[in-house]
């Protein structure tokens, strides 16, 4: 990244003198614009990073964070020492993988469709409606799912399945349904949001491209695949890279509250975040929760650097850095 930076710096811009002085003169207003943001990020994000040491300490409140004893990697042990380590890692990665793919494809599809609609009234209406789930908290979503799936009071078991002549299903104890249920809930809740983001970039595309294409007799389909998608690729890549960076994290509410913390489902619903929560709810150990966070971040970081490297190889334009 430093190499890249220096390359840019060295490359003389056409029509500009290459000297440092004129560079500074040209760019100081831009740096001035950045200043508040940089300061905020240092305070809000970089300074607290000293907290990483908590992961390597046995925190004792009488001694304070800095006075507590160092314990090396002991706080990390619980993440690997258990036989559940395989299950939680597998679940976390598989779900996130599936989420990245379904989420991206569906959101792009809906964004394109939304953009196609001619009547503005409908565009607005649909947009508002599909954002609704995003505004609800996971706790509420979990109650809604429960209202659908419950044995005693659920809409499916009480109304729909009897109509179809199917016996009621004990949803909360059958593991086989949950990968699908969780994927559906996740997409249902998140697509509206992602769709709005993609829509904003689609709207930002210069209409001249389409006008030219239409003159050339390109079909809608061709326009979508050769204009829209390539032009929003940078945003898609950014969103995907970010999702990859967070592949070891998961939405706690989705995996804990939506299955109602149902024990029999743990095989397919336990992810790293829920494992840590269940284990630490009584221990309340700061060091161990920091360790989990550090582990998740580190894996994500490595993966992002790798993926970005791959993107750079394929198309330098679209790489994030």
């Amino acid at each position: 990244m430093e190499q890249a930076a220096s390359k840019i710096r060295i490359r003389p811009r056409p029509g500009k003198a290459g000297s440092r002085w004129s560079m500074a003169k040209k760019f100081w207003p831009l740096y001035l614009l950045m200043l508040p943001g940089v300061v905020y990020m240092i305070i809000n994000n970089y300074l607290p990073m000293f907290g990483i040491i908590i992961a390597f300490k046995d925190i004792n409140f009488a001694k304070g964070i800095f006075g507590s004893d160092w314990v090396g990697f002991k706080n990390f042990e619980y993440l690997f020492k258990t036989e559940d380590a395989y299950i939680i890692t597998r679940n976390t990665i598989l779900y996130n993988g599936a989420f990245i793919v379904t989420h991206t494809v569906l959101a792009i599809a809906f964004a394109i469709l939304l953009n196609e609609i001619r009547k503005k009234f409908f565009t607005r209406l649909y947009q508002s409606i599909i954002l609704l789930p995003y505004l609800m908290s996971m706790v509420i979503v979990s109650y809604l799912v429960y209202a659908l799936l419950s044995m005693e009071t659920g809409f499916l078991n009480k109304t729909v399945l009897p109509l179809l002549g199917i016996e009621s299903i004990s949803w909360y104890t059958e593991t086989k349904y949950w990968p699908a249920i969780l994927t559906i809930v996740h997409n249902w809740k998140g697509i509206g949001f992602l769709c709005v983001i993609y829509l904003a970039s689609i709207i930002g595309i210069d209409p001249e491209y389409y006008e030219a294409a239409t003159l050339d007799g390109a079909s809608k389909r061709q326009q979508i695949f050769s204009i829209t998608i390539p032009l929003i690729a940078p945003v898609v890549i950014f969103m995907t890279l970010l999702a990859i960076g967070r592949i070891f994290y998961s939405d706690f509410g989705l995996f804990y509250q939506v299955p109602m913390n149902s024990g029999p489902l743990l095989e397919v619903t336990n992810v790293i975040d829920t494992y840590v929560y269940r284990g630490l709810i009584f221990l309340g150990d700061l060091g161990m929760s920091s360790a989990a966070g550090a582990y998740q971040s580190l894996v994500g970081f490595v993966l992002v650097i790798l993926s970005n490297y791959v993107v750079r190889r394929l198309s330098k334009e679209n790489a994030l850095f």
Binding site: T82, D84, T173, S262, P264, R278, G279
Partner: peptide, 27 residues
């Protein structure tokens, strides 16, 4: 429980998986 923290977290997870089901008669 400080000296057996790793085991305690694992055991809590196992307990979460089985206890409520067993102790409510569902399992």
């Amino acid at each position: 429980p400080t000296s057996v923290k790793a085991e305690v977290t694992a055991v809590y997870n196992v307990a979460d998986q089985y206890r409520r089901g067993l102790e409510s008669g569902v399992l």
